[in-house]
């Protein structure tokens, strides 16, 4: 019984079968819908706004993509952001800006390392480990900060946001470069393919001699480090480090990754999909704000759109599986 040699479908058919293309279509539909409802939506100013609002959540979502690709999840990113923000705020009192940022990022990476080791070496469930880290991180953020926001952040820090290159702000450029690097890493390097293989079939990856242990830990380290990077950009804008910062950030990040087509079982997903997922999330929130929808209703709107997008995706897959 040889498998039938299915004819290659025509280009439009192949495109529609690519998840990223379908999600990009969804993003465009949302953009068109919102621009019809609010004339302000498609102005250049607002587009920069959307990109600016995408930076923090977008950076965190990259780390989350790495973790979810291995079949894990990182619920601690919000708390780690809060805690490393406090670390940054405190470090800035004594250290020059680059060293202070390095300290915050190192702290985030260290927390990720602990989570990763607990998950990969000791085999604890990622959900539980990072839930624990989430509680610990937030609690330490309050303790280190003395329960209040740290102000007096040097204004020169804001250069990392407001410097522009060809009219594009530095934080947006950083975001795009980060996505480019992450995409290249996941597609063209041994480590990136190992992350996919580990998430898709850990046993097979192990039997083929891949470094399953190392690449199960690395995504948590990246996730922790990027949470610190994200909060650095946030603090640079508001010039204050709040122990409550990053609250519920993990939910937005997970939602963006999942809208981008990643499977929570691991092995499936892409960094481009995540970028589209981030843009969809931010656009909806931005549009609802423009239309003056009460913040209390925004959760309902965003939640419904996430669930509908996933449902549509599942129905599409059922149909094409036949």
């Amino acid at each position: 019984m040889s498998a039938p040699t299915a004819a290659r479908p025509a280009l439009p058919g192949r495109l529609i079968r690519t998840l990223e293309v379908r999600m990009l279509g969804l993003a465009l539909v949302i953009a068109v819908g919102l621009s019809l409802m609010s004339p302000y939506f498609l102005t250049q100013n607002n587009i920069f706004n959307i990109l600016d609002q995408s930076v923090v959540i977008g950076i965190v979502a990259v780390g989350m993509t790495f973790v979810i690709l291995t079949g894990g999840i990182d619920l601690s990113v919000g708390s780690v952001a809060g805690l490393t923000g406090i670390v940054l705020g405190l470090a800035l009192r004594d250290l020059p800006i680059p060293l202070a940022i390095a300290a915050a990022v190192a702290a985030g990476a260290f927390i990720g390392l602990i989570s990763g080791v607990l998950v990969a070496v000791f085999g604890l469930a990622p959900f539980v480990v990072t839930l624990g880290m989430m509680a610990i991180g937030r609690s330490l953020a309050y303790i280190f900060s003395g329960q209040t926001a740290i102000s007096g952040i040097p204004e020169s820090l804001s250069a990392i946001v407001y410097t522009t290159v060809l009219g594009i702000p530095a934080n947006v450029i950083f975001l795009l470069l980060l996505y480019l690097a992450a995409w290249a890493y996941l597609t063209y390097t041994k480590g990136g393919r190992t992350i996919y293989a580990v998430g898709s079939n850990r046993e097979a990856a192990r039997a083929a001699g891949l470094n399953v242990l190392g690449y199960s830990i690395l995504p948590y380290v990246i996730s922790g480090a990027l949470a610190a990077v994200a909060i650095t950009f946030s603090i640079a804008q508001i010039l204050s480090a709040d122990p409550l910062a990053g609250n519920q950030m993990e939910l937005d990040a997970i939602a963006a990754v999942v809208i981008g087509g990643a499977s929570l079982y691991g092995g499936r997903g892409s960094i481009i999909g995540t970028l589209i997922g981030v843009l969809i999330m931010v656009m909806i929130r931005n549009g609802l704000n423009l239309m003056g929808v009460s913040p209390f209703w925004q959760g309902t709107a965003i939640g419904s759109i996430i669930i509908l997008a996933l449902l549509a995706e599942r129905l599409f897959n059922w149909r094409s599986a036949r």
Binding site: A197, N201, E203
Partner: peptide, 14 residues
């Protein structure tokens, strides 16, 4: 070549 093709050999998403 391990025994269980689906569980030990095939990486379905690659």
């Amino acid at each position: 070549v391990a025994e269980d093709r689906r569980a030990q050999n095939i990486v379905p998403d690659l």
